[in-house]
Design a protein around this nucleic acid. Structure first.
Lengths: 203, 203, 203, 203
DNA sequence: GATGAATGAGTCTTCATTCAT
DNA sequence: CATGAATGAAGACTCATTCAT
């Protein structure tokens, strides 16, 4: 990587980092491009060299943050699987969910930022656009997980959809609004619901 | 009601109707107060006589539209109950869900407008603020429905929360994004999931 | 006074009292006619029955408040003269100044409201417009005070002008800004300066 | 200075000059930012690149104009001192006052604009904020003037305060209102009053 | 590649004033 | 006399985007 290219990467990272800090503190609508560039220490025009507009940098941030969340969740699953061979599918899914939920609970700013973006729609995007998430192959991982035990499913896609929407929506509500209860109190009910849903989808 | 008061109501309704039309066609961010008033045929200042700001008129609109949705759903339930005495709780809930979902499916603009606003948070608001929804008593109706058969529940509040979040999130995704399938295809799975969740919450 | 006229006076006083309270708490520019009428409990249109516009009610307030200030000062002088026959002119003037200054010091909101309005220009207005100040005859009183001891003056009008401007400007600055010292510290210097100015004007 | 920077200075000066012209002809409240920018031939947004808001450009204008007034007065003093060695302090002060007064008399629009801003408060500001007035060191110059003859003072700060307030208030009143006499008629009395005040403050 | 001055359309909001009831 | 709904001109200010340097 040449010096110029290195410099370019540096600026891009600076823009991403500072915009994330501003988005999560001031809020997205109250953060202007001007705020971002002056915070990142680059000229206003430079922003447009790296990103098309505000939504573009938001998308990149969501992708980055989601990728981290997913990677960490899959790592957790790997460890859990190693310690518990023959884990049923529903427990694998709950392990992943638990990892993501815990990360978001520890980091409410991230939760607020990902807002409702961490939904199925995002994973569809991630599946289509290979550049969006680089180190995780969403589809492949999911297929491996649900098929590892020889189980059969009515519609594994809709099962994923249902679970993701339930988790993201309910957890988001709790973390952001603090109602109707704490995440710890809710978890047992959520996980039981997930188990029930998984069984509903068995062929 | 005097002539003046009648006229006032007329203007208010005109503002609500025209703003709704604009919000659902141009989108909320691209609809300015100017757009609304010129469309409604009143002076710009008049808007501020009836509403505090844009969010205020949006809230009124959400309340109105949600109220209609709920009223219609409860009507459907009443008819269904009359025809099917001793209906199990999960079927009552599904009847309500089906009514709301169908209404939204027939009216995607309304779905898009209600966006993520038709979630549990809204019903909490509606429960607290008696003025928000006038002709439906959310809490009372819900209690009547789940207790009518003498059933016992672990936590009926969290059950409601879980179901509402699942429905609103998944249905919204389908109607707005059109993925991963059509609403008709999804309904059986959704309703089965709801049944499973309800059973999970039985004491 | 008929009942109607009494009611009229009541409304006028209410408008004056509430506008004064608003002017001195929110500030004149941030107080709208709407604020005044809703605070006074009358309709917006009613304001225009009693006053031409904002400046009009301000002028009325200044006149009222100044009149009180002057009346109280002349009372003080009368008492002081009774106790000290043959008081030199400069001491009479200082007695008046002391009374006004003390009143303003006790009531900084009044000081801020009268702002720079309590200047010579005001007394000129008061002299010309008999309706502005009703119970005090500025010119007559002043003439009586400076001529009572048979003193002769180069130009008694300019003397009054000089003294009023010095007092109002310096005292206002101290009360409003709190600099460069407290009013108590400043008084000896101010009074000495007044004495020096008076002597300068002796014929 | 690069071409760009030069251009920037030009625009800033244009904004200052045109706003001054508008402020002094239409009055400050009746001059909008729009008026200023369209008069200066720049876009509305450009104004906010150079100034925070209306008050900001007013402050800059006051500082500029006051600085000129002071510089010219100190120049006059220097000439007068050169021609009259051993000038008493009161005459030095009167020389300065005379210069400022004459300038304002020649330029009533400037007098009206500086309004009551050319008071002690301003010089305190100027003393604290070195950026406000760049080519005059208010405090240093004043100290040099009153101490040059070895005189001793009770409180030189309060003396300055008293004199400045008297001058600014009385002169402003005359120039703006035209009462109670012309500046030429008033000057002898004012200068005598200043002399008397100075002597009052001698230790 | 990078800069940052300049743009100007567009936003929300206020408010003195009027006038039909 | 009093009301208060309605007006609409006018205001301050923002900001994504461009482009000459």
């Amino acid at each position: 990587m040449g010096k110029a290219e290195e410099n370019k990467k540096l600026k891009l990272n600076s823009l991403l980092a500072h915009s994330y800090k501003l988005f999560t503190t001031k809020g997205i609508p109250d953060t202007s491009i001007s705020d971002i560039t002056s915070s990142a220490g680059v000229a206003k025009g430079t922003f447009y060299f790296y990103f098309r507009d505000k939504q573009d940098i938001i998308d990149h941030l969501i992708a980055r943050k989601s990728e981290n969340l997913l990677k960490s969740a899959l790592d957790s699953l790997k460890k859990h699987e190693a310690a518990n061979p023959g884990l049923p599918v529903e427990e694998k899914i709950i392990t992943i969910a638990d990892s993501i939920i815990s990360d978001l609970d520890k980091n409410p700013k991230l939760a607020r930022f990902l807002n409702r973006n961490l939904n199925f729609g995002f994973y569809v995007k991630a599946y289509k656009d290979e550049n969006l998430i680089q180190s995780v192959n969403v589809r492949e991982d999911y297929d491996r997980i649900i098929n590892s035990n020889g189980d059969k499913w009515k519609d594994s896609g809709l099962m994923l959809y249902t679970i993701i929407e339930l988790i993201s929506s309910s957890v988001h509500g709790i973390i952001i609004n603090g109602t109707p209860c704490s995440l710890e109190e809710y978890k047992p009910y959520l996980f039981d619901s997930i188990r029930a849903i998984v069984n509903t989808f068995r062929a």
